[in-house]
Design a protein around this nucleic acid. Sequence first.
DNA 1: CGATTCGTTGACATGCTTCAAACTTCGTGG
DNA 2: CCACGAAGTTTGAAGCATGTCAACGAATCG
Lengths: 251, 251
Amino acid sequence: MLTQVPSHHLPHECHVCEPRGGCLGLQLLDSEEARQQLCHAKKISRKGEHVFREGEDADCFYVLRSGSLKSYLVTEDGEEQVLGFYLPGDVFGLDTADSQLRMSSAVALETASVCRFPHAYLGDKAQGANLLKITAEQMQRDHNLVLMLARKDADGRIASFLDDLACRYWSRGYSASAFLLTMSRQDIGCYLGLAVETVSRTLTRFQECGVLKVNRREVEILDHASLRKMAGTRVNSIAVECCQKAALSPS
Amino acid sequence: MLTQVPSHHLPHECHVCEPRGGCLGLQLLDSEEARQQLCHAKKISRKGEHVFREGEDADCFYVLRSGSLKSYLVTEDGEEQVLGFYLPGDVFGLDTADSQLRMSSAVALETASVCRFPHAYLGDKAQGANLLKITAEQMQRDHNLVLMLARKDADGRIASFLDDLACRYWSRGYSASAFLLTMSRQDIGCYLGLAVETVSRTLTRFQECGVLKVNRREVEILDHASLRKMAGTRVNSIAVECCQKAALSPS
DNA sequence: CGATTCGTTGACATGCTTCAAACTTCGTGG
DNA sequence: CCACGAAGTTTGAAGCATGTCAACGAATCG
């Protein structure tokens, strides 16, 4: 299957959109020139650099090609709320306020590159259902987060978080059992609505239970089944689909 | 301003889309016949009736014309998670899974009517930015909920919830100070991630503080300023915009 | 009119936050 | 290369907000 990617369409075609059924540029951008020009106009951001900030003009959305980043917003009292973490292939920057301003900020957690999809160049192909499909992914992620925050305790949130990451890494061809956390404990807490101390303590306890091994930012999941059991419900989704596959994999 | 609505376009044109700058049917549907046919094909749902259910085929999204409804999903263990409440003019049903299936359910809280927007009839006008603008509203609501669940205590959540409702009623021409809660305490708790008892207790306490008067489902807000102060931060948005206006109103 | 659902209130248990302190890692400049 | 300070991580102890359990009253429905 992987060998059937039509590599003649784009000279430097990447593979991040494969799970989506092919390059998003081909799916959403009309003219060949727009695709060539825009999809490959990648922008490199180093750790801590912003792709965009809340309040800026928003004339495009993005696909992450490599690296990882977080989306967040800042409350009046200066506190940060992390809305999500993005891995290669993820679409981000879809949330724009009424007047086409950024509603959130996106910052690189490590060196990263992105594809730009200017709204102005979204052609006939980007009509209705096509575009809705993309935005629905984001909504699903949001709903999943709401579900965690509203219904799960610290253990469930951390377990969900790790399981989700594992699945997403796995679906991208990386190990689902051992990976590096590119975000800080602070970020994790900010995402899950928990104090940093709670995150740390929970991870330590999971390690003591033999569910995983954690050292600083290195995580190795030893007992996927237990982790998933603790994680509990998730929104039925692409992610779940991938997880069921992952459950069948040798892990 | 209200008198400038071009009533000749649609024989039974409603006013729910006014804050959005006019009938969404005119903005998103191409052919006149599609608009006539689809935008006015309203469907009546009585209290407890579903507009759609999780898992069903999703070939359209909706605009609520009258009444109110809630969007929710059900977890594996049968628990419900309310994702949002919708008032006339709100767009809902945009969240569809990969294969065009409903990711959530929508049920009427009282007698309601809706406009259908079939994906298949979204014309050239529904390209890119136009559609993104609509979906961004939903994302903003979601982010606001995430912010509440992750950062605010019970008082803040209830205050935010009431303030939000007040603003939305106000922007629709109703009183921002006195309104009826169309949802149960159960629903409110399910939405805000709180136990029913906590919702009840918090409302009682607010009443004792003189911030509001509450009797069963009737709410009267006596001290908007205090309420908003307790509510704390909100995602900068259409809603906030409306709230600032509301703050200037006699209320 | 009885049954069921909804809302309120009280007492108690607990999971998480907060505060505090120690240790580690990282970056920067001497 | 080492020294220093800042930031990130871990662990402990104590306080408190919220969940849970239980009971009761009020409203709604058949």
